[in-house]
Amino acid sequence: MPDLLTVTGATRRFGGVYALRDVDLDVRAGETHAVIGPNGAGKSTLFKLIGGQLIATAGTIGYDGRRIDRLAPHRRARRGIAIAFQDSPVFHNLSVTENVMVGAHAVTRAGPVAAILRLPRHRRDEVTIRALAADALARTGLTEWADRPAAALPLGQQRALQVARALCGGPRLLLLDEPASGLRGPERTALATLIEQLRADGLSILLVEHDVAFVARLADRVTVLDLGRVIAHGTFAEIREDPAVITAYLGGPR
């Protein structure tokens, strides 16, 4: 399968400290790829480089055959990269449906003039956006919550809502930042089922995750980071046996 996302030699330095050093990573079309590693391994930094929230000190990021490492985040979204953040919650001043509708920004264009004058373009886009949102809500099992304020959702549904918002932009690559953190057992299982369903629908997924069991269930391939470097990559079964990974996770002489 061809690579959808190719990260080559990604390096990010904060002052004299390397958060990420010479990291290579590729996500193939249709696969679920997990990035794991202990705290401070550079997972979040890598994630932000791909999403555009941070710019790499060195290295390139290719997506769908073109370099994207200098694009602003909203332009990457238009190319088909969608993100569900861990640390930025839902838009709490919007309803569940409106939250999801924001995600359709990436695939619609009606601007301020169309909105102010209520031009046909505005109406057409609104119809499209509503349909996309209804579809994304159905895929994530949130239809019955549609008209609630987003802030009123339980944490598990808030995570699903973030995924729904990401799906509403019709992405090809979905970035999930620790989607399972803070979730209880049943919520965690529901989320895993959702991610499996998205994979079956053909979406490529890059998952940054702390929970190893979650990764074992979902990931086709795993990249392990420690102290900003890739220390192993392969299937879950392969990296589980890797001595470097065992040392990084269990501690010991480095």
Partner: peptide
């Protein structure tokens, strides 16, 4: 009113609460 109740307005309301998430959703902040 028209501006707020539109695609652009939703983007604006979103960026008022979560700038990074809004931008990642395609809102040109």
């Amino acid at each position: 009113y028209h501006l707020v109740h539109s695609r652009v307005g939703r983007g604006l309301r979103a960026l008022a609460t979560g700038e990074a998430a809004a931008e990642a959703s395609g809102v040109p902040v």
